[in-house]
Design a protein around this nucleic acid. Structure first.
Lengths: 233, 233
DNA sequence: GCCCAAACCTTACGAATTGTAACAAGCTCA
DNA sequence: TGAGCTTGTTACAATTCGTAAGGTTTGGGC
């Protein structure tokens, strides 16, 4: 997949470059426009993934532009505006914007909000619930583990919870308490054995050597560490 | 389609009621919770369309909750927080939140932002009468399933109800309780099994491998998830 | 080194949950 | 009325997952 494309429409050059710099640094492609007409011309040939639009434009009312963008193109639209009244924000959102950021803003937050938009888009179209680590592929859609040879092993929901927890925090200590909490059990007395069993079963499916586990490491008296170079896709 | 359901999780009662009032007036159904544990218990039986979550909870770290919600349930999450630093907002968004609103807020804006989230969800899901997913086409006019080769399989009304429910909320947990409710049965004892049978029959028509279903996934003790890239037309 | 208690692992079992085939009741249409 | 379809019900098979029980490992004290 190529880098997502972000369009920036603002009449102040300083703001355009500030946003473009931050977004490019975050790995996005960008296109900048100072006037609505230019922007619309570009829309004929390209469809951006996210549009950042300033409402106060010299040559057009920004709101109708937003409305058309959202409605016709289905693109994600984030309004960036100096108008901070609640009423402004509400009408902007009602007209189809997905977010409304007020000037002055921190570029870091803008990047985060752009990412949030993309993530949502992605999750409805793409099935990107998969992690690769040390020769294994864990697919959380099909609840399947796939080894290097392509052989598949299904894992259950409970096992998946543990696995996911590990894959989300690789190479960090995960205490028993955190596990209990995440895995939705009240911390009980004999209940914590359930945890062990889950991990035992998971280890088995990962073909861990009981004497010398390579992936799921026990820290006596503390918790577990998942050692593995995780790559989510 | 019934009114969208919005969950509110905040430890201050005043804020809960303020939000609930505004949302109800706007036509949403609401559920309020003061503690994360209550909220999570409710998630076992219901899937809200949007979750409003305060980060400063008495009994749990809100961020990990948000993370799980967004990742596993696929629900839209809006953080409502008193922590106004850019860094807070960025980490919240990075962890999976779709929006971040700072206290104090205007309920009107919250409603607008909730609407924005739903609009997005809906636009990919909105009910036409025909849905495409993973090579299949389900036509609700003719009650027919069409596979990639163009071969048609009729489905019945009861099967259609289940299928529609799945296609309207893909990639989200649908609890048994919600199913019963939607499929018009009071939750009875042996009545539960009717639902299983419906799903079994639907799976058969979708040619699911019983050992390894790819589209309709069972979550033991919780409900079902429909995995499929749905496109309504 | 040796001992011991605590922590942890594994196996087996069983209760709860879910899948599905087979039957029966109800409906539709000729 | 009867053939054909839909759908709930029942019964039994299969799966999931916590629990108990016994074995193994760890680390500290002697």
């Amino acid at each position: 997949m190529t880098q997502p494309l972000v369009s920036i429409l603002d009449d102040e050059p300083a703001i355009r470059t500030m946003l473009a710099d931050a977004l490019q640094e975050a790995g996005f492609r960008t296109m900048c426009f100072g006037r609505a007409t230019e922007f619309e011309a570009a829309l004929q040939t390209t469809t951006p993934d996210v549009c950042l639009v300033d409402l106060s434009l010299p040559d057009r009312d920004g709101l109708t532009l937003v409305h058309r963008l959202a409605l016709e193109k289905g693109a994600s639209v984030i309004i960036i505006s100096g108008r901070a009244q609640v009423q402004d924000r509400v009408t902007g959102l009602e007209l189809g914007a997905d977010d409304y950021i007020i000037k002055p803003f921190d570029p870091v937050e803008v990047v985060a909000r752009v990412r949030a938009r993309l993530r949502r888009d992605r999750s409805t179209t793409h099935t990107g619930n998969r992690a690769r680590f040390n020769g294994w592929t864990a697919c959380f859609d099909s609840y399947t583990l796939i080894d290097e040879a392509g052989q598949q092993t299904p894992f259950s929901h409970a096992e998946g919870e543990v696995l996911r927890l590990f894959l989300e925090r690789p190479k960090r200590l995960i205490s028993r308490a955190v596990m209990q909490e995440t895995l939705g059990g009240a911390a009980g007395e004999s209940f914590d054995r359930a945890m062990d069993v889950r991990i035992s079963r998971l280890r088995h499916k990962l073909r861990e050597d009981p004497k010398n586990p390579r992936l799921i490491k026990t820290i006596y008296g503390a918790g577990y560490i998942f050692l593995g170079d995780v790559n989510w896709t």
